[in-house]
Amino acid sequence: MFGYVRAIPGKEPIFMIKVSVYRGDLSLIDRGYTDEEGRYEVEIPEGESVTVRFDTHHSLTNAEEWHPSVVANVIADNAAPLDRYLVRRGQDSDEASSMDALNGYLAAAASSDIEADAQYAPTAVRRLSMLKQPSRALQGLQEGLIQHFREQT
């Protein structure tokens, strides 16, 4: 599977975004990183339904710059790209982009491969704190995620 990761707005490519692929039980299948052109490539079993998470890595200079994104129930296809657009931390986004970012954090909270929760959690709290929510329901979810990641630190 391959694709490109770009910024909202502007559509410029984003370098060094971690792309993680999971089975339905959120066990890790493969991971890779985007290159200077925002392109990534990961190996997955053809035809298997997977979840793909796009996020930063706590050890990189962009660790707090972007909100994550997740796509669930994707059927692997090596012929068609899976492109994603990420929201920069501190920028206003529409309701769909806010929900996508929150789902990215939810996937991180539920995943068994989050490397040392104590290292990921502080960046998640800071990024989540800068995400503006357009509805009370999303604000409640955001507050719950912030609390979850605070407990991990």
Results as ranks from 00 to 15, higher is better:
D83K: 08
A107F: 03
Y85F: 12
S98D: 12
M99K: 15
L106Y: 01
Q91S: 03
G104T: 05
A76G: 15
V87R: 13
S98F: 10
S69G: 10
L102W: 01
V74M: 11
A80P: 00
A109V: 07
A96P: 00
S69T: 01
Y105S: 03
D100F: 00
L106P: 00
A109S: 14
A118H: 12
G104Y: 06
L102K: 02
E115C: 01
V70K: 01
G104E: 02
A72C: 11
D83E: 02
L86H: 09
Y105G: 07
A79Q: 12
S112V: 02
A116H: 12
E115H: 11
M99P: 00
N78H: 11
A96R: 10
E95Q: 14
D117M: 14
R89M: 07
S97M: 14
A110L: 14
V74A: 13
S93F: 07
A118K: 12
A109R: 06
A76N: 08
I75C: 04
A80S: 11
L106C: 09
L86V: 04
A80G: 03
S111K: 03
N73Q: 07
V71F: 06
A101L: 02
S98Q: 15
D117N: 06
S112N: 04
V87N: 13
R84S: 12
R89Y: 10
G104V: 05
V71N: 06
V74P: 01
M99R: 14
P81T: 05
I114E: 14
Y85G: 00
N73V: 01
R89L: 00
V71E: 11
D100K: 07
M99F: 09
S93E: 09
D117Q: 05
